[in-house]
């Protein structure tokens, strides 16, 4: 099936061809809803034999192994491994704090989500891109198949960066609405004054294969500020008055490092795969190198 050319800035054509060769990998085998290209824990109708079991009345007669019946005079049912689809969720943080940097963190997050989603689409996985913090009315469609690329990109491009700022609430809302198992990639900057821990715990409770990708702009990692400033928070209009000094900048960097380390540790303890990236790092590089190392893609 030929992919129609997509006039999108999110995914350049060369990236698309690169992504087509990739595959999302889940560390767990989940039960899908529809027949997919993946083996499922569930026994089903595939060519790959799994096991035998005794016939009980009501079983589909089509799966009785008649050769065994002839030999042993007992009815056995032939079980096959079911091949199923994979549920892939990309959670994109739509809080205003993401709309920062050049390119903005939000754009970067959308690009990443689009790339991962496309990999999923190519493998007939069930792809759902969930904007965090936006009203439910804007909930994402469930996409499947390479032909859905256009829809996905269109949807992503129309996503506004004006959601609520509470990460936990948004994640909980997602968990309530999506009970299925699968891979979830949370793309956020984790900058929530109420903390990100509750949100991650809620995801863990869903028994999902969780990836957290923290996106930070270069200006956040290494701020190039001078003078006496009144820093205004774009989310809650909170402000912090600072006088830049080498000591303060140093202190800030240490605070940031400690913040990242805490997040990494928190994630590692709960089986969450965490990684931090800067918007300066190209998406293709991130996927082809870093995410491959982490085992998200193959």
């Amino acid at each position: 099936m030929k992919t129609p050319p997509v006039p999108s800035t999110l995914l350049p054509p060369q990236l698309l061809t690169q992504l087509e060769r990739m595959e999302l990998v889940s560390r767990k085998i989940f039960r899908g809803r529809m027949k997919g290209e993946r083996r499922s824990k569930r026994k089903g109708q595939s060519v790959e034999f799994a096991d035998f079991r005794n016939y009980v009345p009501g079983d589909d007669l089509r799966f009785i192994d008649w050769n065994l019946y002839a030999r042993l005079d007992k009815l056995f049912l032939k079980l096959f491994l079911e091949e199923e689809d994979l549920h892939f969720y990309a959670l994109v943080d739509c809080s205003p704090s993401m709309d920062f940097g050049e390119p903005s963190k939000f754009f970067y997050a959308k690009q990443l989500a689009a790339a991962l989603g496309y990999i999923g689409l190519c493998r007939s996985d069930r792809v759902k891109i969930e904007p965090l913090g936006l009203p439910i009315a804007r909930a994402a469609p469930v996409l499947r198949g390479r032909s859905s690329l256009w829809r996905m990109l269109n949807y992503l491009e129309q996503l506004p960066c004006s959601g609520t700022t509470n990460l936990t609430e948004a994640v909980k809302s997602f968990c309530l609405r999506n009970a299925g198992k699968g891979i979830v990639v949370l793309i956020t900057d984790l900058m929530d004054k109420n903390g990100y821990e509750a949100a991650l715990r809620a995801l863990v409770a869903q028994d999902l294969d969780i990836y957290v990708i923290q996106v930070l702009s270069q200006a956040e990692i290494d701020p190039d500020l001078k003078g006496d400033l009144k820093l205004v928070d774009v989310e809650d209009q909170d402000f912090a008055e600072i006088s830049i000094s080498p000591r303060l900048l140093d202190k800030y960097r240490r605070t940031l490092a400690s913040f990242i380390e805490t997040a990494r540790e928190f994630s590692a303890r709960r089986g969450i795969s965490y990684m931090m990236t800067s918007t300066d790092r190209p998406v293709d590089r991130l996927i082809s190198r870093y995410l491959r190392q982490r085992g998200l893609v193959r």
């Binding site: 920062f100 940097g101 900058m191 956040e220 820093l231 774009v234 202190k251 605070t255």
Partner: peptide, 23 residues
């Protein structure tokens, strides 16, 4: 003149506040 701080929008003052708390 110097004390008139220049306002600057940042994604979050979260880290800055934490930095300043120590100070």
């Amino acid at each position: 003149l110097k004390l008139r701080r220049r306002p600057l929008a940042v994604p979050s003052t979260y880290l800055w506040t934490r930095t300043l708390e120590d100070l």
